[in-house]
Simulated scan of single mutants.
Amino acid sequence: MSVFGVAERLRSSPAQAWTLSFVAFAVSLAARFLFDDMLPAGFPYLTFFPAVILTAFFAGLWPGIVCAVLCGLSAWYWFIPPFNSFHVNHQSFIALLFYACIVSVDILLIQLMHGATEGLRAERAVTRELYDQQREMVAQLKDREERQQVLQNELSHRMKNTLAMVQAVVGQSLRHAPDLKTASDTVSARILALGRSQDMLTQSNWQSADIRSIIEASLVPHVDHPGRFQVDGDPIDLNATQSMGLALMLHELATNAAKYGALSTDSGTVGIAWKRREERHFELTWSESGGPVVVTPTRRGFGSRLIERVVPGYFQGTTSVDYRPEGLQATLTGVVESQTT
């Protein structure tokens, strides 16, 4: 510990500070008596000055002042003629005035030095705090830049995925449409289905979307009365690609049902149920009933390939479509990946 550190510790303890003041006075007085015969005449304060200086430095202002007063009175009484009295004459007055000026200057300089030291310590503390704040700000800025870069990369990745899916939908829809108007209507409807799934993803910061939310958003255009759809299943989170793929599949199934199946009549209903099979594996079933008699189609368009080939790829699974006379049934099985891909 430095000398200033020792002084600060003593000044912070009143008991130690005042003890030092009286001990310094006693030692200086004893030394003055001990060396009285050896000291030259006219120097009554020779042993008292160090006591006052050391006390003021280590013990503080008031202990230093008290030590100075005690030392001054002792020197006046025992070592300034006439001895053993507090008689004031021209000689003693000059000696006392000299002593008072010297110790006052000493104590003042010591207090100024302590004040400057404390100010320097405070400035160092402020500098250290500012440095820590600057370092923290630099770290935050670096972290913000890294997150910004991650967000930019993630946005680019998502846009590429979305554009690739849109490109596939548009290309296949145009390729298999009988005329331009049909192609335009089909593309618009499928892109709207993608848009509804993206709305669900946006609400969850594009991390994942609950399967029920995707299903309900995809079926909104076809809900004409409360009993039209029966939706039932456990909470399952789907990532962005799987959410958009499932939205396309449901759009195709609902569109076909509105044209040829259960949704083409007022009494027809559709049941959508899903469940977990093991860990991340799940199964989703679309079941129609109450509609016209189902006939197996002779021609397979892009919608059928989307349901049976494209969408299952997003789930690392398969889709089976059963054209039962009482109503079409489609079953999707696969693996759920809730992290964004």
Rank of each mutant, 00 (worst) to 15 (best):
266 D>W: 10
266 D>L: 08
133 Q>S: 08
43 F>L: 07
159 M>W: 02
36 D>L: 02
141 L>S: 13
94 I>R: 02
259 K>I: 08
280 R>D: 11
286 W>E: 09
337 E>D: 14
146 E>C: 13
177 A>C: 11
103 V>W: 01
15 A>D: 02
53 I>V: 08
235 P>C: 07
177 A>D: 04
271 G>T: 08
16 Q>N: 00
28 S>C: 04
63 P>G: 04
240 A>F: 10
186 T>W: 03
256 N>M: 07
214 I>M: 02
314 Y>I: 04
74 S>I: 03
215 I>Y: 12
168 A>V: 08
322 D>S: 03
3 V>C: 08
206 W>A: 00
240 A>P: 00
65 I>Y: 06
112 L>Y: 14
281 H>E: 13
285 T>W: 12
195 G>A: 11
214 I>R: 07
295 V>I: 15
23 V>Y: 14
195 G>F: 05
46 L>T: 06
310 V>M: 12
249 M>L: 14
145 E>P: 09
66 V>L: 05
216 E>I: 06
86 F>W: 00
70 L>G: 06
336 V>H: 10
183 A>N: 04
8 E>L: 15
248 L>W: 07
16 Q>L: 13
26 A>P: 01
319 T>A: 04
187 V>G: 02
251 H>C: 07
130 L>I: 10
47 T>R: 03
283 E>R: 11
149 Q>F: 15
119 G>Y: 14
22 F>P: 01
80 I>C: 01
50 P>H: 06
112 L>N: 13
60 G>K: 05
241 T>C: 11
28 S>D: 01
26 A>I: 13
89 N>V: 09
51 A>M: 07
203 Q>I: 06
330 A>K: 05
139 A>V: 06
187 V>Q: 06
14 P>D: 03
257 A>T: 05
136 E>W: 15
233 G>E: 02
239 N>L: 08
293 V>L: 02
259 K>A: 12
260 Y>A: 05
256 N>E: 03
285 T>N: 12
1 M>P: 09
152 Q>F: 03
227 G>E: 13
181 K>G: 03
322 D>K: 00
12 S>M: 11
81 P>G: 06
67 C>Y: 04
43 F>Q: 08
72 G>K: 03
39 L>Q: 08
251 H>F: 00
204 S>D: 10
298 T>G: 14
289 S>I: 01
49 F>N: 06
187 V>K: 04
102 I>H: 07
157 H>I: 04
250 L>P: 07
46 L>Q: 04
218 S>T: 02
39 L>E: 03
231 V>E: 11
72 G>P: 00
242 Q>S: 00
137 M>R: 14
314 Y>D: 10
279 E>I: 12
135 R>F: 11
262 A>S: 09
95 A>S: 07
196 R>H: 10
196 R>C: 06
112 L>F: 15
195 G>K: 01
245 G>C: 15
316 Q>S: 04
247 A>I: 12
71 C>R: 08
307 I>M: 14
56 A>D: 10
57 F>E: 03
239 N>K: 09
265 T>H: 07
100 A>S: 12
279 E>K: 15
276 R>M: 14
236 I>S: 05
28 S>Y: 05
305 R>P: 03
161 N>R: 05
184 S>K: 01
249 M>C: 09
328 L>N: 02
151 L>T: 08
297 P>E: 13
159 M>A: 04
207 Q>E: 08
105 V>S: 11
239 N>I: 05
129 E>W: 13
309 R>M: 11
160 K>Q: 12
113 M>T: 14
217 A>L: 02
57 F>V: 00
183 A>Q: 01
314 Y>S: 09
28 S>A: 10
